[in-house]
């Protein structure tokens, strides 16, 4: 292990918090999806770091499965974005107030 596992975890935590703040603070649907992508990548970094720390292949394999799941998620999410833009004419999440939440 070239660096302590704690430093990898700190980096991943900072990335996750950055992505989460992007999800919470931005109102553009595309930017929210980008925040989700950053959070998924932070989790992947934790998996790879844990794999290097415990010298086990499982972390890297799960990082690969995570990538595939992220690809599936982003496919459906972007299709939804296009659908919302067509049906509502906007992707500003503050305008989606039809449920009166």
């Amino acid at each position: 292990m070239i660096v302590p596992l704690g430093h990898v975890l700190i980096l991943a935590g900072l990335l996750f918090v950055a992505g989460l703040s992007g999800v919470l603070l931005r109102r553009n649907l595309i930017m929210i999806l980008i925040g989700v992508e950053i959070m998924i990548n932070a989790v992947g970094l934790v998996l790879v770091g844990a794999s290097a720390y415990w010298r086990s292949p499982d972390g890297q394999l799960f990082a690969l499965l995570l990538m595939a799941v992220a690809a599936a998620e982003v496919t459906v999410a972007l299709a939804l974005v296009v659908y919302l833009k067509r049906s509502r004419g906007t992707i500003d999440v503050n305008r989606f107030d039809g449920m009166q939440g």
Partner: peptide, 19 residues
């Protein structure tokens, strides 16, 4: 590149190709 440094060369390639 961080993945490569942490000993996952194949995952690094897929990160670039896929992501």
């Amino acid at each position: 590149l961080l993945y490569f440094l942490l000993g996952a060369p194949l995952l690094a390639a897929w990160q670039i190709i896929l992501y």
